[in-house]
Write a protein that binds this DNA or RNA. Structure first.
Length: 267
DNA sequence: AAGAGAAGCAACCGCATGTAT
DNA sequence: TATACATGCGGTTGCTTCTCT
């Protein structure tokens, strides 16, 4: 016996959406939201569409702040870097590019970027390393404050410098991780405190990233210099070790600082 | 100008994961 | 804890548009 269909296939429309259907869907969601139930939505909205189709249409084209059109060079670099480290996890990659959808990025990668990279021989996708995962699934203990950070950090001025994130993580980041969770206080800092979230370093920074879809993130300063601090976050709940690097964009101690995403590593 | 092939992209499909009961 | 169902995701398809000859 196969899987039950999510909708009555015989009575739903397929293929491209008409402007009328778009309007119906948009109006309905603006008035009532999705109601947390996409399956029931099309009937309520008067659409002869599958709930999944409505969801896709909304997420990829109709919801506000969607960015379409040309990708910038910076976006290219981010996509390449992330693809090199995490592979085709498009939704995660999309999360790092404001206004871009996973579908958009996937299409862009498959039709243009991949070819561009092959032509330029810039990089090869990096396969997941089981050895690395095993190593990182165990807690790491090392006293952050006793470390000579300069020995373990590396210039990240060019995003290209982390095109080999696995080696980077081994050689530069692994040595400075980590410390027992109760050894440092984060309460003085304006960071949303979540269970299992640790903070290291001088702790003057805040970042909304900690509440992102990456879950409960640990937070480590790995480099400090004038107007440039690179932050490493890692998620010790992810079965695949994950981390990403942020570059400080503004420096106002009294307000939440914002960070420009510079790269991410998943293992 | 027309046909063929390539490229672009919206949308579908089915599996994995999350959540409610 | 087990089960059913909804949602999310990535791979793939197939239609449309573009480019080349």
């Amino acid at each position: 016996m196969g899987r039950a269909p999510c909708c009555d296939k015989a009575n739903v429309k397929k293929g491209p959406w008409s402007p009328e259907e778009d309007t119906k869907l948009k109006d309905f969601i603006h008035k009532f939201g999705t109601g947390g139930n996409w399956i029931a939505l099309p009937q309520k909205a008067g659409l002869r569409r599958c709930g999944k189709s409505c969801r896709l249409r909304w997420l990829n084209y109709l919801r506000p702040n969607i960015k379409h059109g040309e990708f910038s060079e910076e976006e290219d670099k981010i996509i390449c870097t992330l693809y090199a480290s995490i592979g085709s996890r498009w939704s995660i990659i999309a999360g790092q590019l404001h206004g871009r959808t996973d579908n958009d990025i996937k299409n862009y990668w498959n039709t243009k970027l991949k070819k561009k990279l092959i032509m330029g021989s810039i990089m090869q996708p990096k396969p997941f390393s089981p050895t690395f995962q095993t190593q990182f699934s165990q807690p790491l203990y090392k006293d952050y404050n006793s470390i000579n950070h300069s020995q373990h950090t590396k210039s990240l001025n060019a995003i290209d410098s982390i095109l080999d994130p696995q080696n980077y993580l081994y050689n530069n980041i692994l040595p400075i991780l980590s410390t027992p969770s109760d050894q440092y206080s984060y309460n003085n800092y304006n960071i949303p405190v979540e269970e299992n979230m640790l903070m290291f370093g001088n702790g003057k920074e805040t970042s909304n990233s900690t509440s992102s879809s990456y879950g409960k993130l640990d937070h480590v300063i790995i480099k400090e210099e004038e107007n440039q601090e690179f932050m490493l976050y890692y998620n010790n709940e992810d079965p695949l070790f994950s981390a990403f690097l942020d570059k400080k964009e503004t420096a106002n101690d009294d307000e939440n600082k914002t960070y420009e995403k510079r790269g991410m590593m998943y293992y």
